[in-house]
Computed example of a mutant assay.
Amino acid sequence: MPLIRNSYGKGRVRVMRVHRDAPRHEVRELTIQCMLTGAFDAAYTEGDNRSVIATDSIKNIANIVARDHVGLDNEGYCRALAQYFLDRYDHVETVEITATETKWTRIAVDGAPHDHAFTLDGNGRPLVKVSASRDGATLVSGISGFTFLKTTQSGWEDYWFDEATTLKPTADRLFATAMDASWRWAGTPASYPQANAAVLAAALKVFATTYSPGVQNTLYLIGEAVLAAVPEIAEITIACPNKHYLPIDLSPFGRAFDGQVFTPTDEPHGQIECTIARG
């Protein structure tokens, strides 16, 4: 029976490019599908894989091209990725690259866009909880999945080491999280929307402008800042997964890691939680 058509490739290749040649960093996070057609029929009809470029190699090529073209816009990167296959593999006839971007917007600190701290576009889901009885009521506001990152000014060092420890210390890492936070009201603010906005502004200012020795310390400092900014809040509970962006080892391809190309991953993640209340 005839083989009418075929294509193959690699899907859901996640790449974060951080262009950090200047104090003002640029971030571009893509999820990529790369599909090839060409002289691959024998792999289907004969089980002959000699012409097949392994899908793991396709993933590696996406990372190599990302490292070599950190500063290109997404369109330029995808064109360069497609051209890489056409230039190196004569038996590849067509390359189809589909890339979707996870958009990040600069955090505004005191009205100015920050150089290396960002929030996710279309960010967070505000929430309200009321517990009421004839004896009284409590009101809690909050937000779920409020996502932000910074490309520097974060580290993780001097933690407990034993036979199970494999993680290497670092004084400079990418820090990203999707925060769930709720704050219990002790009084009524002049405007709930304005007070809630002040909570997020205080949290993001701490995140963007202070060095983080660990998620734990950053959460505590955020809680302190929120209570100082909004006096009607009695306490705030914060839960933050440590969303990992893993450095990609390109040394097998003659390229050093210099904080510019990462693999985004959500699972497994560190889960850090705390509650900060007025004394």
Rank of each mutant, 00 (worst) to 15 (best):
G279R: 05
S191P: 04
I222R: 02
E26A: 01
Y89I: 13
I53M: 03
M35D: 15
Y245E: 03
A202D: 04
Y8K: 11
Q153H: 12
T263R: 11
A195N: 15
S154R: 07
E26Q: 15
T37I: 03
N60T: 09
A225S: 13
Q33C: 12
H91P: 12
T138K: 02
P247F: 06
S251C: 00
D180F: 08
G47Q: 08
S144E: 13
A99I: 10
R255A: 10
S51L: 14
R20N: 15
R278A: 08
S131I: 07
H19I: 00
P23L: 05
E75N: 11
R20Y: 07
F85P: 04
A82T: 13
L221P: 00
E273I: 03
R14S: 07
A117W: 11
G122V: 07
L30Y: 14
K243S: 10
L127Y: 02
P268C: 12
S57Q: 11
A108G: 14
F161V: 14
V215Q: 07
G155D: 09
R79N: 14
G11L: 08
G259N: 09
T209D: 12
A198C: 01
G142I: 00
V261N: 04
S7W: 05
R20C: 15
R5H: 14
T166N: 10
I61Q: 07
T100A: 04
E232C: 05
R50Q: 15
T138H: 11
Q83P: 01
G259M: 07
A132G: 05
S51N: 15
P189C: 03
A203Y: 08
Y245F: 13
V230G: 00
S144P: 01
G111V: 12
N196Q: 15
T100N: 15
E273S: 12
D68R: 14
W160R: 01
H114G: 02
L3R: 05
D158C: 08
S51C: 15
I4P: 00
T138R: 09
P189E: 13
T166P: 00
T138P: 12
W156E: 03
K129A: 10
L174V: 13
Q153C: 06
Y211Q: 06
D258C: 11
F253K: 10
A197M: 04
D162W: 00
T237M: 01
A132W: 07
W104T: 03
F253A: 07
R5V: 10
A99V: 09
R134F: 13
R28D: 10
V52R: 09
T237Q: 14
T263W: 01
G47S: 12
G9R: 09
P2A: 03
A208Q: 09
G155I: 06
P264T: 02
E235Y: 04
D249L: 08
K168M: 01
S182H: 06
V109P: 01
A277G: 00
M1N: 04
N6A: 15
P247Q: 11
Y84R: 09
T45E: 13
M16H: 01
Q33L: 09
A132Q: 05
W160C: 02
R79C: 10
C274L: 14
P113D: 11
A195R: 00
L81K: 14
T102W: 11
S182Q: 13
